[in-house]
Computed example of a mutant assay.
Amino acid sequence: MIKVAVLTMSDKGFKGQREDESGKLIIQMLKKIDAVVESYKILPDEFELIRDELLNLCENKYDLIITTGGTGLSPRDVTPEATLAVVEKRIHGMEIAMINESLKYTPLGMLSRAVVGIRDQTLIINLPGSPKAVSENLEAILPVIPHALEKIKGSMSDCAEQREKLVRDHEN
């Protein structure tokens, strides 16, 4: 079982002025990998609050933290900066996979600043804020999350076997 926290960054959502469709979509999509969301919060776009919540969740041994929102170019979009203040290793391949998937639908995908990284044994993934972009981006990386978590936790399993399984699943 994968222990997950979902964080939505939205000033309007935090104030109750907007429903959080993206956070709810993430929770639904994670069922495909048998993940259990044990924490769900909406935070305002505030660097310190985001950073501190990420640190708290890592200290509480969450396997996976997925954020939505705050990855764009507006002055209040600080989720990537807060995430970079927390992670110890980046996973550029997952970031690239999300951008590549977004570019299939819109050239605006190249404006994403989403970060994917690891702190201790926690995988942190930033997703965009719109439900459509969340769906596209998470679908692109969802199949590799369980294997990534196994490796983060120290599994010595053979990556070649997992690769072959993912190739077969993708072809079907």
Rank of each mutant, 00 (worst) to 15 (best):
M1V: 00
I2R: 10
A5F: 01
L7F: 06
S10A: 13
G13I: 10
K15D: 14
K15V: 13
S22I: 05
G23P: 04
G23Y: 01
I26C: 05
I27S: 09
I27A: 10
L30K: 02
K31F: 06
I33T: 07
A35W: 04
A35T: 06
V36L: 13
V37K: 02
L43N: 09
P44C: 11
E46N: 14
L49W: 01
I50H: 01
I50S: 01
R51A: 09
R51I: 01
D52P: 00
L54R: 03
L55W: 00
L57C: 07
L57T: 05
C58E: 03
K61M: 07
K61F: 09
Y62G: 05
Y62I: 00
D63A: 05
I65R: 04
I65W: 05
T67V: 14
T68H: 09
G72I: 03
G72C: 03
L73N: 12
L73W: 06
P75Y: 14
V78Q: 01
T79P: 04
A82H: 01
V87N: 07
V87M: 09
V87E: 06
E88R: 14
E88M: 13
K89H: 13
K89W: 06
K89F: 08
H92V: 08
H92N: 10
H92K: 11
A97T: 09
T106W: 00
G109E: 02
M110I: 15
L111M: 12
S112R: 01
A114D: 00
T122M: 06
I124P: 05
P128C: 11
S130C: 08
P131K: 03
P131S: 02
K132G: 00
A133D: 05
A133H: 04
A133L: 11
A133Q: 05
V134T: 04
E136D: 12
N137H: 03
N137Q: 05
L138A: 07
E139R: 14
A140L: 13
A140V: 14
P143Y: 03
V144A: 11
I145K: 04
H147D: 04
H147V: 13
L149I: 12
E150R: 15
S155H: 08
M156V: 10
S157E: 15
D158K: 07
D158T: 09
E161M: 06
E161D: 10
L166W: 03
V167Y: 09
R168E: 14
R168K: 14
D169W: 07
H170V: 11
E171L: 15
